[in-house]
Write a protein that binds this DNA or RNA. Structure first.
Length: 335
DNA sequence: AAGCGTTTCAACCGCGACGTG
DNA sequence: GCACGTCGCGGTTGAAACGCT
């Protein structure tokens, strides 16, 4: 940055460093090291404070600094590490050789943060934003799933994080439609529609690698996440299946494994001491997903151990429709 | 080409952590 | 335990660079 060249109330120079100053600092540190930053500027013949010298050295002049654009791999690593460590830039920098905390911080604020916001992900929590107006619309989501137009593993991953939340909402809508189109209400014996014998489509999201939070089994959530019914198999549901398959397929050799084990092995982070926050909300965050909202409001006594009474779906739906935050969202879909 | 708005990123500031006497 | 000095971190700033009209 370029600030006023001299500090107020002191004759020590501030602002941008000149090549001559850089040279003095490098020459001094090469010979003497930097044992004492306070004393260094005087000894090196610099009219700077020690703090300024330290900053210049650690952020710019150090010989092992890697400059230039961040690679995709570095970008992924930063996101992974940030999800665990938060804004601990120096700790994140420890895992990225040649990168400084300042550089990573700037890169986060100018690039990654924006990217996450555009994907509908809160960069602070790494969870889908509650502001659904920023989410991808349904057609975009399904289009992406059907045509496989994910530009890169990174895009794929970020999009899926947002999509997971949206898929939960879609699934709720789907179940409602299925109920309306069948004789389930008249035939309570027929549990196949919402049946628990089907493999849980979103099992991985709940119990797998991306979400590390444990969560109590919840009848509503399990039913809402039931797989599409192939006998009906509307294109939209097939598209969701495809999207899910692409998620389950991973993102390439090194992948974007966000689980504790991989973070531990890749970055040396003890996640048992610092549990990884969910990248896709699985439980507690209020308003993280409408699915969770309905879940938290629902009365547990409504559920059996084997399935969800149809009334529960409708109750969830009613609550959803009543929610101002989501009314326009659902209106768009229904229209 | 000029003017204006936006983005980038080097550098500063304040504060907490740590070490020493 | 306390005071003081130094270091390191994270948030913020603002001129330069860039992009758009």
């Amino acid at each position: 940055m370029v600030r006023s060249p001299f500090s107020h109330g002191s004759d020590l120079k501030k602002g941008p460093w000149t090549p001559e100053e850089d040279e003095k600092l490098i020459d001094y540190i090469k010979i003497n090291g930097h044992e004492n930053w306070k004393a260094l500027p005087k000894l090196a013949g610099l009219n700077r404070c020690g703090k300024s010298c330290r900053l210049r050295w650690t952020n710019y002049l150090r010989p092992d600094i890697k400059r230039g654009k961040f690679s995709e791999e570095e970008e992924r690593a930063i996101v992974n590490l940030h999800s665990v460590l938060g804004n601990k830039w120096s700790r994140i920098a420890n895992h990225l050789p040649g990168r400084t905390d300042n550089e990573i911080k700037n890169f986060w604020n100018t690039h990654i943060r924006k990217k996450l916001l555009q994907m509908g992900i809160d960069p602070n929590t790494h969870k889908p934003r509650t502001d659904v107006n920023n989410f991808l619309n349904l057609s975009q989501l399904l289009g992406a799933a059907q045509f496989g137009n994910m530009a890169s593993p990174w895009d794929n991953f970020l999009k899926l994080q947002a999509d997971a939340n949206q898929l939960a909402n879609i699934q709720l809508l789907r179940n409602l439609l299925l109920i309306m189109n069948t004789n389930t209400l008249a035939n309570p014996e027929n549990n196949s529609l919402l049946g628990s014998q089907n493999p849980n489509l979103f099992e991985g999201l709940v119990n797998g690698a991306i979400i590390s939070n444990t969560r109590e089994p919840n009848p509503i959530s399990q039913d809402l996440f039931e797989p599409p019914v192939t006998t009906q198999s509307p294109n939209d549901f097939q598209a969701i299946s495809n999207l899910w398959a692409s998620y389950k397929g991973g993102f390439g050799p090194e992948g974007l494994n966000m689980d504790n084990n991989s973070l531990s092995s890749s970055y040396g982070i003890q996640t048992d001491q610092n549990p990884l926050p969910a990248l896709v909300s699985a439980s507690t965050s209020p308003g993280t997903s409408i699915f969770n909202q309905t879940e938290s409001k629902a009365n547990p006594s409504n559920y059996s151990s084997t399935g969800t009474p149809t009334s529960t779906i409708f109750e969830a739906w009613e609550k959803l429709i009543e929610d101002d935050n989501y009314s326009s969202y659902w209106n768009d879909i229904l229209e």
